[in-house]
Design a binder for these strands. Structure first.
Lengths: 199, 199
DNA sequence: CATTTTAAGATACCAGGGTATACTATTCAA
DNA sequence: TTGAATAGTATACCCTGGTATCTTAAAATG
């Protein structure tokens, strides 16, 4: 009996190994949460060595983020088009809540703040390959609103375009649970006034 | 000669010791910045033992914050009253910049994010004894604006009142330097539209 | 004063993030 | 086929935040 299965290489490499690590990280994240997630445990569970992790990810928070990106609920790329800016925004951010609800926010405690050490808030939703999906979605929603005459897109500065991400992250970091009520408040009290200020 | 003067007590206690620690922390903060500030170094410089630090402050970021509160530039309690909400806001937040400019923001890298692990954003400016001065100031500025008919104060929700702090913190966390240009942009593009949305 | 209580001192320790090193299995180019 | 380059494995190590323990000075109590 030899290498029947083709792949029982003594050493996994590249994508193989990477997947094993991410998978282990994802499982542990679900079991113990970000705070109690340790690099050593991930390595052990993946039958890999710690340096392997650090060769691929600069730090624990990046690794965790990658795992969530890979195994977590996918952002519904469907951009709502309800015919009203308000409804579109509420609908869209309502979808975002899910990512945090799947675990319960305690399991993610510390992740966001750790991420903020290396990257600015607006970039939190960027993946390495793809661009900031959240940002793009918001822009599309706003352009749809422009077609209906609700605002003038080119009047919106980058800072204003980032505002939704910033406010959303803020809620998450503030350790409160982000409910639909919170979302509608943010939209009504802040986002709509800002977006339509130059309509 | 009684010991009331406590000239060379072998052991400092209470406020004495606390001041020594805070002073050491402040000096080290200026020398090496928050990231390279270590509890051991603070203790050593203050000729104190590490447990002394942890008996008074729950963690490194709290100790650093206390030191800054004690020795850093005082927030000018003077609330501007220029006759225009816009100018008042710009003036006030312009004052805040100073705290971060004294060091250069790199020296404070990590402090804010560490603080966010234990307290929500809006509370970052609260001290243990006094209430949130920043918050109070913003409210006063807004009430002055109400007198001039620029807005209706009671229409502003807590979330909206916290917005200035949130945006300011966000800029700091984003590792960009917060300039006056940034401040005026924030005021013009975001704060004014939001505050006056219900005028 | 004498005794009790409080808190500082000294120090050892633990856990976890992150790095360095020496060695070896794979891949790939020649 | 062989040899160099690449990237795993194993493991020891460093650093620092934070804790535990034991001793002892000082303050408070009476």
């Amino acid at each position: 009996m030899s290498k029947i299965e083709t792949n029982h290489p003594k050493r996994r490499r590249g994508a193989d190994l990477e997947n094993a690590v991410l998978s282990s990280a994802w499982q542990l994240l679900n079991e113990v949460g970000y705070h109690d997630l340790t690099m050593a445990a991930i390595a052990k569970k993946a039958n890999a060595a710690k340096p392997v992790l650090y060769r691929r990810w600069p730090d624990k928070s990046s690794l965790a983020a990658s795992a969530i990106l890979k195994f977590g609920p996918k952002l519904d790329v469907k951009i709502p088009d309800t015919g009203s800016l308000r409804e579109d925004l509420i609908d869209f951010f309502g979808q975002l809540i899910k990512i945090f609800d799947i675990f319960g926010t305690e399991k993610l405690n510390g992740l966001v703040t750790d991420r903020l050490k290396s990257i600015p808030m607006e970039k939190l939703f960027e993946t390495s390959n793809s661009d900031n999906k959240l940002q793009k979605s918001v822009e599309e929603i706003l352009k749809n609103a422009e077609k209906r005459g609700e605002l003038v897109f080119k009047n919106l500065s980058p800072r204003v375009l980032h505002l939704p991400s910033v406010l959303f992250i803020n809620e998450v970091v503030s350790q409160e649970s982000v409910t639909m009520a919170v979302i509608t408040d943010i939209v009504d009290e802040i986002l709509l006034p800002v977006f339509t200020a130059n309509s």
